[in-house]
Each structure stands twice: as structure tokens, then as C-alpha cells.
Write a protein that binds this DNA or RNA. Sequence first.
DNA 1: ATGCTATAGGAAACCGCTTTACTATCCACG
DNA 2: CGTGGATAGTAAAGCGGTTTCCTATAGCAT
Lengths: 337, 337
Amino acid sequence: MTTIDEVAQLAGVSPATVSKVLNNRPYVSAEKRALIERVIAETGFVPSQRARGLSKRRSYIFGMLIPYTSNQLFADPHLLECIRGIEDVANTHDYNMLLSTARAPAEAASACVRLLRSDVIDGAIVLETIDLQPFTEVLQQHDAPMVAIGYAQGTALHAIHADDYGGALSAMHYLLSLGHRRIGIVSSVLRPFALEERLRGVRVALEARGLCLNEQLIALGDFSSISGEAAGRALLAQPEPPTAIFALNDRMAIGVMRAARELNISIPEQLSVIGFDDIPTASMATPPLTTVRQPGFALGDTAANVLFALLDGSMPPPAAVIPTELIVRGTTAPPLH
Amino acid sequence: MTTIDEVAQLAGVSPATVSKVLNNRPYVSAEKRALIERVIAETGFVPSQRARGLSKRRSYIFGMLIPYTSNQLFADPHLLECIRGIEDVANTHDYNMLLSTARAPAEAASACVRLLRSDVIDGAIVLETIDLQPFTEVLQQHDAPMVAIGYAQGTALHAIHADDYGGALSAMHYLLSLGHRRIGIVSSVLRPFALEERLRGVRVALEARGLCLNEQLIALGDFSSISGEAAGRALLAQPEPPTAIFALNDRMAIGVMRAARELNISIPEQLSVIGFDDIPTASMATPPLTTVRQPGFALGDTAANVLFALLDGSMPPPAAVIPTELIVRGTTAPPLH
DNA sequence: ATGCTATAGGAAACCGCTTTACTATCCACG
DNA sequence: CGTGGATAGTAAAGCGGTTTCCTATAGCAT
């Protein structure tokens, strides 16, 4: 392993000068700089992050905390996009990402504290599906750079989330404008705040037309397509079935489509379906699913950018909302008659 | 941030003594040890991994390299189990896991070299879906601890994989012993070596009965359930359809079941289906899927253990094969007639 | 010529912990 | 009673970079 001293010796300069070149700082003549750079290239020298971190008081690593319970959630292509966005930004900042999956909710915060105190990470991105409450304390003791992906109300964490409310609102507006009045909703038993916001969008859209959310037309799933299928079946088995179903995520929407097909209900003629997320399979379903796009990449991207802003000491806005977009495809049409 | 010197001062000893306590090493009297431990507890001191790593020449972090292309693969619950197994072992060794997703195949190896040279990681676990060839070079230059999850032939990497061959063999034996003779296979266009091995198991089982693999009875998918559905439909649409279908992963098997249901072919009466992996949804399907269990957790667990063996300098076996197990559930029965 | 500032470069301290000497006791044993 | 070996503890030298401070020279105006 080459060290900075070896490079210095080979170039006939002091390590201090090599350091200046490495951090491209002034007060090095063009010739020496070139010489040193050549030696570095020849030896393939790469500075040790350990040593560098010790002086700079940085580890150049941030933590990504995901709840292990997010088994299905992790499987969500949306999260993958998110991670891609985060990694993209991390790479441009020469940072690496430590993955920490917390089993129990309480564990997450203490694991995070441990990682911070032991200088393993400089900051963290937390998925809101982890209970964020314990993190408030962490922040107070540590004022470490931390951002949450999700709504993190009452936690002093910087929160980044998609415009769930607006997305649901526009999905419902669209269905209503097509003429639908009996609209089924596939929600979930477990209700992260994002879902709460989507439901709020649903309610507000209905109220704007003088309608209200009919409890009978709500079915519950667990985000999986299988649960969506069951929910769809339940809704469609009602004496007066809905003419449209808004599933609060794509996988459940795809389940609903499956249920409809098995009941010989044609989409979109007899039933309109809208999902939420715009996962890759949404556009590949038959017919392709109308849905609300949640830009995962952008979410990850801005979350990471906020994190780095915090690391650099600049004060980013306390919360960022990433816009969503209604993608109209083939599963929506005006109701019959 | 408390340092070891502060602790030493508070306890009235030298930092060297505190270090002995931290690494629980001998030559410290019981009283001093107790005293120091109390001070540590009171101050909440946690040693800095940066500094510790610098002297110990370790970072206590290993890399987990996954190809980003494994979009779907990453979504595979199986991989999740694997990661859980890895993390479990990592935790007991006080190691952390750095996640690095490589976009291009070639990128992976160079990213890995960078991480190793810059002392960010001490070793790595690589998914075999990454092209492992470039890693051989890395190993030669670096002899870093590295293990591959998968078959890594010709790469000098330590390989850990499930007994794909044996699993496929027993699945086929079972179908054949039930009396099936026309057995459809759902394979994949993309053929990682694991799939090759499963196919070999299929062939050998058939040959043992004097049969051979009929090309007509092979359909190709891409591991997703949607592709499995298409493949199932194709197989069942044949003039002389198979009486059993062995899908080389569970998600495609579930697709096959969906195809059968839509064609009003009852399972297991008119068609037997076997999958591979035993993902959680397999047991929740209706009827529950007969499949070959691939113990993801054990895979991750032993991969990590081999890695740590390498780190400690002990020589582990060059390759480890994790046994698979046929789980008979409700989708298999003797053929009709 | 004299001062003053900007540029180049290096010596050495430092980051926080580990480890290698090295010293000082204490105990047993011939 | 001297000697040797274990035990307890510490000072100081790393680990591999960065950074502060200091010196030397050059360029420029006075």
C-alpha cells in the first residue's frame, strides 16, 4: 500500500505539498504539481480515508436506515429508485452509503446513535417507516445531519416527501371529471402518514363536489398485489359496486385488475382503476395502468442533497415536497350509460 | 465528544490502560478495570472507529456489491433474506455493511478496488449477477477478502451458493414419481449459472428415467410473475399440453398458476406446479405452492462467515454449498387419466 | 537599498486510538 | 538472599493523512 510519504519521497517533496495537491489547494508551483500528479498516477496511490477522516473529522460515509419490517416495502421498486437517487448524489460528493436495517423500531435510533458516536457515519437518511420519535432525542444530543424520507412531523428532522395529497387529489379530480360517482378506495390497515395524506386528498376532492367518502367503499390491503386482489373482489362483490377504484398503491391496483378480470369485469369499460407510485410494471400491465407518478429518483436525490447541505453547514429548507404527476394510461374511462 | 484521554484523566490512569479495558486485555487490576468501566458508562464514551481503524488497519466495514440491474432481483424476497443473514453475522462481529450498487458491470470491479485501496472497506461480498471476471484481477493485486454469492467459476473468489442442481433434481424426481411424463419447464432468457445448474438437475432427472428434455416444453421468462404467466399460457396452449410445470423460480410459478386459473385448468388436479426459492408468498398462494426451498438466510449467513474467516486469516473451504429442500404443498398431484 | 506582500515549500503538531517497549512490584524458588 | 518470571501500569512511538506555522524567495513600490 503506497502512502503519502512514499509519494512525497518519489517526487522529492514533502508530504505537506502532496497533501496540497490531493486537496487541490494553492501554493504549489505548476511543475511540482504536475510532477506529483505523475507520481500519484504511476504508483496508483489512493489516500486512505481512515487517516484522512481522522484529521478532517469526517468519515465520508452516511447511514441509510431502513426498517427491516419493510420487507415488502424494500421490495417496492419505488424504494429502489429512491436509493438510486441517493447514491447518485452521494457519488458526486465522494460519499459512501452504509446500509443499516433495524429489526425493532427502538433499535433503529440507538443503532444510529452508535454509528454517529463511533464516527462511523457523518449523518443519516432515515425512512419514515421507522418510528422517528426516538430520533428527536438523538438529534438534540447530537445535532447530526439527518433527513427523513417521509413526513416527520414533530421530530425536528428534515423531511422530504412526495406530494401525496396533491397526487390523490388530481387522481380523484380526474375520475370525477370522467363522471364517476361511486368510487372505491383500496387503502391499507397499516397507515403511514403518506397514506393519510392520500386519503385526505381523496376526501377533499369528493367534498369539492359535495360528495363524501363512503365507508362502504373502502377496502383494506397491505400494499401487496395479493391483498389488492382480495380488496378488489370485496368491493366488486357489493350489491352496488363502484364504477371506479382508486388503489393507494400500484401493486394493490394491479391486484384489483386481477380481481376484475376474474370476475369478467372489463377494464376500463366497466371499471376504471387508478394506482399510485408508477412502478415499472404499471405501464406493462394490460391495459397499462393509469396512476399517479411518485418520482422516486427525485425523492432520493433531494433527500441526499439536503443531507449534504446540512453536512456543509448551509441551512436547507426544513421540508421539501416533490411534486407528483397523474399519468393517464389505459385503465380509466367514463362510466357506462 | 469524549475521547480516550478524557476517560483516562477522569479515571486517573493512562490512556493505554483504558485501551486495555476497551479491548479487554489482561494486565489491568480488577479495581482499575471497574473504575474505568464506570467512567466509560458515565461519560457514554464510545471509541472512534476512525482512530481505532487507523492503528488496527481495519475499517470494520465490508462492502456489499449488488448490480443495479438487479432491479427485479433486488426486489426478490430471497435476496432480502440473504442480506438479513449477512447483517446478522456482521453485527456479531461488530462490522457494518456498505452498500454499493454498480450500474455498469465493469464499474463494479473498479469501484470495489477504489473502496479497498482507500481503506473504506476490509473486504466484500459480491452478488454473482455482477460480472465476476474483472474481480479476479482485483484479487490478484489485492488479495482482499472477497466472497461471491453464486457460482464463481474461474475467478478464485470464494463462492457460496445453494444446491440448485440437487433442488431441481429432487423436484423432478418428485414429479416423475407422481407419474408425470410431460413436464413443462419455465426457464429464463437471462441465464445466471444457478439457472444452468437447475436445468442440469432437470436433465439428469429425466435421463435417469430414460427421458430427455423436450425443447417444445421449455418456455422462457424473466423471473417476474408476469413473464411466468405468459410462459404458462404458452405451454398450456400447446396441442398436447404438459401435465406438470416446473418453474425455475417462485414468482414465475405464481404466474403459471395465474395462467392456469384463467384457462380454467385446475391445480393440482389437471396441472401440477412446482416453483423454486420458497418466497413468502409461495405458501400464501391458493393452493399453496410446492417448491424447492432455497435458504436465503443461511446463504447470507455462511457467506458472511466465510468472509470473516478470510478476514481473520483462517482458511475457509473454497466453496460452500447450501442444501435446498423440496417443500411439498398443494400444487402437486398425480396426473389425471 | 529598504520594506512589504504574495507565493512556494517544508517541519512538526495533531486527529484519537493501539501497541510496543520499558519500569516497577510482587511472589516463588533454589 | 539473589534471581527470574509473572503482573500492573505508563510513556511514547506509530497509523496516514491534514493543517498550522514558519522560513525563504521573488516581485514590487517607495
